[in-house]
Each structure stands twice: as C-alpha cells, then as structure tokens.
Simulated assay, not measured.
Amino acid sequence: MTPVRTAILVSGRGSNMVSLLEAARDDSAFPAAFSLVVSNRPGVLALERAAAFGVPTDVIDHKAFADRESFDRALSARLEAAGIELICLAGFMRLLTPWLVEHWRDRMLNIHPAILPAFKGLHTHERALEAGVKLHGCTVHLVRSEMDAGPIIAQAAVPVLSGDTPDSLGARVLGAEHRLYPHALRLWASGRATLEGERVFVDGEAGAAAALIAPGL
C-alpha cells in the first residue's frame, strides 16, 4: 500500500505534529507519508521541529490576506501543488471557511482536547473541572464547518483526579493526544476506518471497542 501523502498544518510549538512524525519515523508500515508542514505564522517552533525530521516546511502568513477565504484558497493551492491527499490539523489556530472544509471534505483531520461533543471550543480543561466530570480526554475527528464537529474517528479518556488543576489535567490529556493522533491517523489512512453517513466505522464496527483507547486507565 502506498502511503497517503499528508500535510500537517500548525500555528505554534507542534507537539502533536511531533507525535505524528515520530510515529511515521518509527513504523516503516505507517500508512501516511508526511510531505509538507505549513504554518500560518512565521518563526514558530513547529517549523524548526519539522525541519529536524527532514520534512519540507512552508509559511503562508494569514496577515498577508484580505480575508479568510483568500488565505484558505492560497493554502489549498499550496497543498495541491505538493500533491497532498490528506491534512492533519495540529494546533492550527484558524477558523476555516466553509469553502476550505468542503473542498477537503473527509480529507482533513483535527484533534480536540475533550471528549466531543462535550466541551467544544476553548478552555476545555477548566470547563471539565467546573463541570465535575470524572473522565476527560481528546477526540480525533473529520472536520466539518461547525467548530469542533464532525464524524469521530477515535477518542481517548483520562481520569480526572481530585487534586487536578487545569494545568495538571491538561498535561495528562496532552499525553493522551500524543498517543491518540497517530492511532487515529493509522485507522483513517489505512482504510480501516470508513465513513457511512456521518458515522465512522472501524473494521466494520461503530462501537467503543473499535474506536476508543484510554491511556492511563
């Protein structure tokens, strides 16, 4: 099977990006080949880290564009010129236009630091503690126009401990993210995960046993 040509979009330090690049480096059968890392912000740490893995990088500064769609079209053109087939958002801090989402429909993955559909948006760890939930975690999903929505590929859960702060809980969730994103990408890029309607089935099953991993439990 030829690995899927994959790009990673970043805006900051790129810790989830590194987890993906490490997975591909350490697994000769990894089903995705990382061909490009693009940042909308120049000078971010993720670009330096990607270069250390030997992955080509580029910057498309969103501040150079008059509106969101102009930026999104330039970004899409750059991805297509590189022969990209699949996109992984890894801390890409941009609201995507419906045009971009539909143009790359079912070819764009995102990771969110909560067990969706709970706690969409920002400050997920603070909100989880305020709500008193006993499990928190992260989700990898296909991107749709609504923020933090789309068919769920895989989720990971971590326990919420009595003495947790947003920082300590966030660190535990981040560790789960670093394991979950490569796992979910393997499922999707290999074809083991498939979409029927707006539900993802893994190896023909839609249940938690096929889609849930729970590091630390």
Rank of each mutant, 00 (worst) to 15 (best):
V59Y: 04
L75A: 07
V101G: 08
G216C: 10
V140R: 07
C138D: 03
L47M: 04
V143K: 13
Y181D: 03
R192M: 00
A209I: 02
F53M: 14
A157V: 15
N110P: 01
D27T: 11
R144L: 10
V44Y: 08
E48L: 13
R107V: 03
E80M: 07
L135V: 14
E69F: 11
H112A: 03
E48H: 08
A32G: 07
A90C: 14
P117R: 08
A156T: 04
T2W: 06
A7P: 02
S162M: 07
H62T: 07
G216F: 04
V143P: 10
R49H: 09
I115M: 12
A211H: 12
T124V: 14
P166K: 06
K63F: 08
H123G: 05
S11D: 06
G175S: 14
H178A: 11
N16P: 09
A52G: 13
P3W: 02
L95S: 11
D72W: 10
P98E: 07
A90L: 09
V173E: 03
R105C: 09
A128Q: 09
P56H: 09
K134I: 08
A211S: 15
D67S: 11
S70G: 14
E85T: 05
F201Y: 15
Y181S: 01
R78G: 13
E48A: 15
P42C: 07
G175W: 08
V44W: 04
A157N: 02
S162C: 08
Q155F: 10
L109T: 01
E196S: 14
A193L: 10
D106F: 01
L142N: 04
E85F: 06
G14T: 12
R186N: 08
L79V: 09
V101M: 11
A24C: 05
L122I: 14
D164L: 12
M108W: 02
T165Y: 08
V37H: 02
L95A: 12
F201L: 15
L217A: 12
E177G: 09
T97I: 06
K134H: 13
Y181K: 09
V133H: 03
W188P: 05
Y181A: 07
I8W: 01
